[in-house]
């Protein structure tokens, strides 16, 4: 059941992205930015946590989940250390993902070359 919920919630978020691509001609980069901001804002007003509770990875794996982690980190850190936590909490909570992406992307650039398409 857990997997079905992750599948459905994650798939539904992707459909929203697809509608934006097909209907508005938005480039993928803009959609990623919108989704991250959306995830952070929704968590700020307390609406994303329930989605995570229900969908698990279906809510955390898509990009709004990245925004959610940023906002959640900031809020938790603010509760721990006060206002300065707003400056440290977000990136602290998402450091693993960002660092992994930087490191692996760099290693990949040492190994791989772009391929022509047909």
């Amino acid at each position: 059941m857990e997997y079905v919920r992750a599948f459905v919630v994650g798939g539904a978020i992707c459909i929203i992205g697809q509608i934006l691509i097909d209907k508005t001609n938005l480039m993928s980069g803009r959609i990623l930015v919108m989704f991250v901001v959306l995830g952070a804002v929704l968590h700020g007003i307390g609406l994303y946590e329930p989605i995570v509770e229900f969908g698990g990875a279906g809510a955390t794996v898509p990009l709004p989940g990245f925004g959610y982690s940023l906002a959640k980190g900031a809020i938790q850190e603010v509760e721990k250390v006060g206002l300065r936590g707003a400056f440290t909490g977000g990136l602290k909570a998402t450091a693993a993902g960002i660092t992994a992406a930087i490191l692996f992307a760099f290693i990949a650039s040492l190994i791989f070359n772009p391929k022509a398409k047909d």
């Binding site: 691509i21 001609n25 993928s28 772009p114 391929k115 022509a116 398409k117």
Partner: peptide, 9 residues
């Protein structure tokens, strides 16, 4: 970039 996963209209 060539390896970016996008759809062409």
């Amino acid at each position: 970039p060539l390896e970016l996963g996008t759809q062409r209209p």
